[in-house]
Amino acid sequence: MKALYLYFGLLINTCFIYFFPTWGKPISQAKQIHADTTLYGFGRAVTQAEIDKIDIDVSPSGKGLPQGKGIATEGKKIFEAKCVACHGIGGTGGVGGVLVTTNDTKIKKKEKTIGNYWPFATTVFDYVRRAMPFNQPGSLSNQEVYHLTAYLLHANGIIDEKKIIDAQTLPKIEMPNHKAFVPDDRTGGSIIR
């Protein structure tokens, strides 16, 4: 009896050794549609109007900036109505953080503000329009966003009070901290950066 089991055991082993590779190979190498070159045609065409509806980003080049213009004095009024509750009087601090660099050295050192940190002025317009005010995101008109952008840049001492902020002038504004930004230099390997 033991011999019989041994015999079957060997037979089964033999099957695996000799037949499995010849069965397995053609299956694993069977011709498959190559997922990385095929075009499937799924998804639907999107119209320019559909894109425009949600394409709200603004680039440092000014691409994406809408019609309109802003001035700090008007922005101050909007700020006091819609922003001051979270960012404090003059943008000097609140639950929403400090926006404006002041002469207070404690704040200046610790808090990143538009004036002492942000490298691009266009980011102010982009971010305020997409996400502010926090409790009513996306509710500001382009006109209001231009005014607020002008106000925040003026409050940080970057532009003077009468400067008109629009699609032409905003991308040209040089931010004080722009030059500090450098690309990532970490590469892995043995060096700690």
């Binding site: 980003d57 942000w118 490298p119 980011t123 982009d126 901290n177 930004f181 450098v182 690309p183 990532d184």
Partner: peptide, 24 residues
């Protein structure tokens, strides 16, 4: 070009030596 959004400029960037700030 990159869009220089708030998250990749005023946030998620870190000060390193010599007053430099690393981004991306």
């Amino acid at each position: 070009e990159p869009f220089m959004t708030r998250e990749e400029t005023s946030k998620y960037t870190e000060a390193i030596k010599d007053g430099k700030i690393r981004m991306f």
